[in-house]
């Protein structure tokens, strides 16, 4: 079994659900799914002008991993542009700083700041809770 994958921190998800080309020569060409962390890699590197090293620290991954994520992001966007495909943003392997979880037994909602410490609902100690990711 391969090594477990580390989750990537995304500071802010994209403000849109997707991009669609208009004025297409041929009909609907297909969809490219862009992960949240790939969008974030473009934002940190090209928009905020950070180096790969700084950006990898923000995202909580190694420099090499960040470079791979960024390369994949560029590849996907180039594919979408050249082949006139729609871009859709999907969750991928991201976590947010303000992750909200909901206990299924007592309906309490809570955050988990350090990501690792909480394994049960802070109020009723049930382990039956799920991640709410309705960020858009």
């Amino acid at each position: 079994m391969p090594r477990r994958r580390r989750l990537r921190r995304v500071v802010s998800p994209p403000g849109f659900k997707g991009y669609r080309p208009y004025g297409l020569a041929h009909r609907n060409q297909g969809v490219v799914e862009l992960f949240y962390e790939e969008y974030e890699s473009i934002k940190l590197t090209d928009y905020d002008s950070m180096t790969h090293l700084e950006a990898s620290e923000v995202m909580g991954v190694s420099r090499a991993t960040f470079a791979r994520i960024y390369a994949k992001a560029r590849q996907k966007i180039a594919l979408a542009l050249v082949e006139s495909k729609e871009i859709k943003t999907v969750f991928g392997h991201a976590f947010f700083d303000n992750d909200w979880y909901q206990c299924q037994d007592c309906q309490t909602r809570f955050t988990i700041p350090e990501k690792l410490k909480q394994t049960a609902c802070p109020l009723c100690h049930s382990t039956n809770f799920k991640h709410l990711n309705d960020h858009l």
Binding site: F110, T111, P113
Partner: peptide
């Protein structure tokens, strides 16, 4: 308030039952 508390890594818990007393909540925890 949410973004401030997130920044300082303070855990937020949202609970809707306002009939519960403080003692009952502390006992639950």
């Amino acid at each position: 308030a949410k973004s401030l508390l997130n920044e300082f890594k303070i855990q937020m818990v949202i609970f809707q039952d306002d009939e519960k007393t403080i003692k009952e909540i502390l006992d639950m925890m």
